[in-house]
């Protein structure tokens, strides 16, 4: 049995670069640009990582990296510290728990799982933001952010497709 594919799954390739890309995208979409009265959308880019890392293979580095990306997200957006770390880790947990059910499924089923993970992450963020601020966040805003985050599914699918076969022990 050839293990050549496994050597491609170095942490830097499947964890480091995607994490940097997600942070860079967050920075770029944080620019105060507004044209014709409309600002840039604000999707939750690290959601792609929370879902695809759990599907590619279970790893100790994955949730740790997600924790730090969540803190980065909180610091950059100026929100309560720990909010997005909790939300992303919950989504990671859902995907990790359901990865055996996702094995061998097509893009549509994976998309449904991704949507469920997005729902869970934003639901957790909604719950804790309500508890911390004693005020319910605007539901339309949450739905809007969910739609933009869900629209990132092709990126997550591409990432899974790229690294899923790299280490066949975890297929």
């Amino acid at each position: 049995m050839s293990r050549a594919g496994a050597h491609n799954l170095t942490p830097w390739r499947w964890l480091g670069l995607p994490a940097l890309a997600a942070m860079l995208a967050t920075l770029l979409f944080g620019a105060p640009l507004r044209m014709f009265g409309i600002g840039l959308p604000e999707p939750l880019f690290p959601m792609v990582l929370a879902f695809s890392w759990a599907v590619i293979r279970p790893s100790i580095l994955g949730p740790l990296t997600l924790f730090f990306i969540g803190l980065f997200q909180d610091l950059f957006w100026g929100g309560p510290l720990g909010l997005w770390a909790v939300a992303l880790l919950c989504a990671y947990g859902l995907a990790l728990g359901g990865r055996s059910l996702m094995a061998g499924q097509g893009g549509a089923v994976m998309g449904a799982w991704y949507g469920a993970a997005c729902c869970l992450a934003l639901g957790v963020a909604y719950l804790f933001a309500t508890i911390v601020s004693h005020q319910q966040p605007n539901l339309l805003g949450v739905i809007w952010q969910f739609l933009w985050t869900a629209a990132l599914y092709p990126v997550a699918y591409k990432l899974i497709d790229r690294f899923e076969d790299a280490d066949i022990r975890f297929r």
């Binding site: 620019a31 840039l40 309560p80 933001a129 966040p137 539901l139 952010q145």
Partner: peptide, 11 residues
Amino acid sequence: SDARGPFSDAR
């Protein structure tokens, strides 16, 4: 920089 989400609005 600009944060516009439902959970944080800060500049």
